[in-house]
């Protein structure tokens, strides 16, 4: 019985990478909270993960699996054209950081399981 690391880690390694990438997008939003005309961006995490795993029906063979950057729709548009809402972005950032830790914990648990299998 061969053990394949891709099978063991499942989607968690892709999820971890996507979480780190999303962190950057959310950090950009938070950084540009006072930049006039800046439009807050985000990714659809579930769709991006499916894409990264090569699942789902996206039709095009040219699709490189890269996540699609979308624009956030603000609750209250502001006069200067900035669509960053500090509280929303802070909440998303915080949630994303927690989800990152969760993925990391899952990977750690899987690796620990493997180690146990090897060491007996």
């Amino acid at each position: 019985m061969a053990i394949n690391f891709d099978n063991v880690l499942g989607l968690h390694d892709e999820a971890l990478r996507l979480r780190a990438d999303r962190m950057k997008i959310l950090a950009s939003n938070l950084a540009n909270v006072d930049t006039p005309g800046y439009q807050a961006r985000d990714i659809d995490f579930a769709a991006s993960l499916q894409r990264a795993l090569g699942e789902g029906d996206f039709g095009l063979a040219l699709d490189d699996g890269a996540p699609e950057l979308l624009y956030r729709v603000p609750n209250h548009p502001s006069q200067d054209g900035n669509t960053v809402e500090l509280a929303v972005e802070q909440a998303e950032f915080s949630q994303n950081a927690m989800d990152f830790q969760t993925s990391l914990t899952f990977i750690t648990m899987k690796l620990r399981g493997l180690a146990k299998v090897i060491e007996g």
């Binding site: 990438d21 950084a31 930049t35 490189d64 890269a66």
Partner: peptide
């Protein structure tokens, strides 16, 4: 001060998602 966003060039960062500095 007047702020502006600078978008990272995707080609330089070899990253699909460019961030934006201030």
């Amino acid at each position: 001060p007047v702020f502006a966003a600078i978008y990272e060039r995707a080609a330089f960062t070899e990253d699909a998602m460019p961030g934006a500095r201030v």
